[in-house]
């Protein structure tokens, strides 16, 4: 039984590898589905924004409120904006945003493509002379890759505003002083690694959601399983990418 599960794991890994290779082959070949790409960018970006923004705001507020007593114990309240902003921009916001996207985008792509597969809509595209891989997979993966960095930048901004409100709950700090203190420590070098990381997060979330959805079998039960495993696998992938990115940043002294 265990060897069967291990065999299935290896087979699925192989299939995912070929799926990724096919993605890179297809994305450079015409015909280019720009209209569908824009529609997917709108769906992924716009529909995830409220959730991502709200989460960013709460994270900024909570991290600031929780860090305040520790900083106060060392008499370093004035460092609070700098410390919180660096941790938010470098790590917390990108990872939390990616996890939310893994849940929202990963599951919706997995379920949508899964239901299309079991109701023969993907076959219908193929018999109408359309390449379903290009129309459904390439557009969604590209949209996720393009939208994740944007969502992270927006979420960073909202999180920093949340942090500003959090500081002002305990003391009075003007917005001007707050931004000055942030940019005393925070530089473009802090934002860049998180944006590069975001591209990989977007790719992993998009490709895993599409992979699970595209090969869905066994009716509605299969659709549920595809959506569920898309979320689990892409969440896991986000942590792995984060770990690898931290190691690479450490090796090249970007931290």
């Amino acid at each position: 039984m265990k060897s069967e599960a291990f065999k299935n794991l290896l087979l699925e890994t192989g299939d995912l590898y070929y799926f990724v290779i096919r993605f890179f082959k297809e994305c450079f070949r015409p015909r280019y589905e720009f209209a569908e790409l824009l529609r997917q960018c709108y769906l992924i970006g716009n529909k995830t924004l409220p959730l991502v923004g709200l989460t960013g705001f709460i994270m900024g507020l909570v991290i600031t409120i929780q860090s305040h007593p520790s900083m106060e114990a060392f008499g370093a309240q004035s460092w609070l904006p700098s410390v919180v902003s660096v941790s938010l921009v470098r790590e917390i916001v990108p990872v939390i945003t990616a996890l939310i996207c893994a849940g929202k985008i990963g599951s919706s792509i997995g379920a949508e493509l899964g239901s299309m597969a079991v109701t023969e809509q993907i076959d219908a595209m193929e018999v109408s002379g359309t390449n379903p891989f290009k129309y459904l997979v390439v557009t969604r993966v590209f949209a996720a890759v393009l939208m994740l960095p944007l969502l992270i930048v927006l979420s960073d901004t909202i999180a920093l505003y949340g942090s500003f409100l959090g500081i002002n709950m305990k003391q009075v700090v003007s917005f001007h002083l707050f931004t000055n203190q942030i940019f005393l420590k925070l530089s473009f070098g802090d934002l860049l690694p998180s944006l590069i990381k975001a591209l990989f997060f977007g790719f992993a979330i998009g490709i895993i959601g599409c992979f699970k959805g595209f090969y869905t079998r066994n009716g509605t039960q299969g659709v549920g399983r595809a959506a569920n495993s898309a979320v689990v696998l892409s969440t896991f992938a986000v942590f792995i990418i984060d770990l690898v990115a931290a190691q690479i940043a450490d090796i090249f002294h970007i931290i």
Binding site: E112, S115, M116, T119, E120, Q121, D123, A124, M125, V127, S128, G129, T130
Partner: peptide, 28 residues
């Protein structure tokens, strides 16, 4: 190209749920 000459009607219709009837017909 061959599939332009050969139409296929699916058992479950396979209409694209996310598209209107017009978009379904315009798609091919």
């Amino acid at each position: 190209l061959m599939r332009v000459k050969v139409g296929f009607l699916f058992q479950g219709n396979a209409l694209y749920d996310s598209m209107s009837v017009r978009e379904n017909l315009e798609f091919p």
